[in-house]
């Protein structure tokens, strides 16, 4: 027992040290944030985007607990792109923000507004299971926190029951077991949606969608900036996409960007490797 307490204290001390160090580093991030806001209000949107993105790059993005702050930054980046006339990039960043601040009224309004401005009339299909388990209502961090706390309470009471077999503990365990299952499913769906998020946004003003991964292939249809699609696979600089109305076709990969950041980072790395 003493060993456990010692280990926990050492861990907490190490975590606090990390935070203190981060705090020192982020004195600069706050200044960058202020500067970025100033650039935005002065109409220098490109510079504002660079600064907002630099803050995001300074912090890890592949964590389970991700601060709502990321959502605020993506939202601001989206606004910068919108003001500079890039609807596609604006929608891309708004959708990224939605994962962190799904109930933000400003964000909801802006997404709806940008959708109204897009040329392609496509509605997104609704996922009933996600709606039932509140995945679209809560952020990933909120679901992780709830699951974490319920997990802690459930096993705490299970542990207590090893030593004290009181009847009320049994009922508490039943209640926490139900909460554990529900919150676990919600969290699982959220993780699945995040990790396997294959949504992309069309960034080019107008893109030809072809029957194959070659410029000479038959033109099937055209899509326009700001349209949301699902990416199926990549091949020699082309991506196979599927629209919400089930139309499929190939377009140049540079005309789209994945909403899930890990996907976007992988793409950047691949492009970097090709250039080298």
């Amino acid at each position: 027992m003493r060993f456990c307490i010692t280990v926990s204290l050492l861990f907490l001390l190490s975590v606090n040290t990390v935070c203190a160090l981060d705090g020192d580093v982020d004195g600069g991030s706050e200044n960058i944030f202020f500067k970025a806001n100033q650039f935005y209000f002065n109409g220098e949107f490109e510079k504002a985007v660079q600064l907002y993105e630099s803050i995001l790059k300074n912090h890890q993005s592949n964590l389970i607990f991700q601060s709502e702050s990321r959502g605020e930054l993506f939202y601001n980046i989206g606004n910068c792109y919108f003001r500079s006339g890039q609807k596609g990039n604006a929608l891309l960043n708004y959708e990224r923000a939605r994962r962190f601040i799904p109930r933000d009224a400003d964000l909801k309004y802006n997404i709806e507004y940008v959708h109204d401005l897009t040329e392609d009339n496509l509605s997104q299909p609704e996922n009933i299971i996600s709606e039932i388990f509140g995945v679209n209502f809560f952020s990933q961090t909120e679901l992780a926190t709830v699951f974490c706390l319920v997990n802690l309470m459930l096993f705490l009471f299970l542990t207590i029951r090893i030593f004290f077999r009181a009847e009320w503990i049994f009922y508490v365990i039943i209640i926490f077991s139900i909460c554990w299952i529900v919150s676990g499913i919600s969290f699982g769906i959220m993780l699945k949606q995040t990790i396997f998020d294959d949504r992309v946004v069309i960034l080019a003003k107008e893109v030809d969608v072809l029957a194959g991964p070659d410029k000479e292939d038959t033109l099937l249809f055209k899509v326009h900036e700001g349209t949301l699609a699902y990416q199926e696979r990549n091949e020699s600089g082309f991506s196979l996409i599927r629209l919400p109305d089930s139309k499929r076709g190939w377009l140049v990969s540079s005309a789209i960007e994945a909403i899930y950041m890990a996907g976007a980072i992988q793409k950047q790395e691949l492009e970097g490797a090709k250039l080298e």
């Binding site: 935070c19 944030f33 940008v114």
Partner: peptide, 20 residues
Amino acid sequence: IFPVHTSVDPVKGLRQQEFF
């Protein structure tokens, strides 16, 4: 569209995320 969010909390939040 609605304007950018200018609160300083975003940066503080990012600082805490690794701890959490």
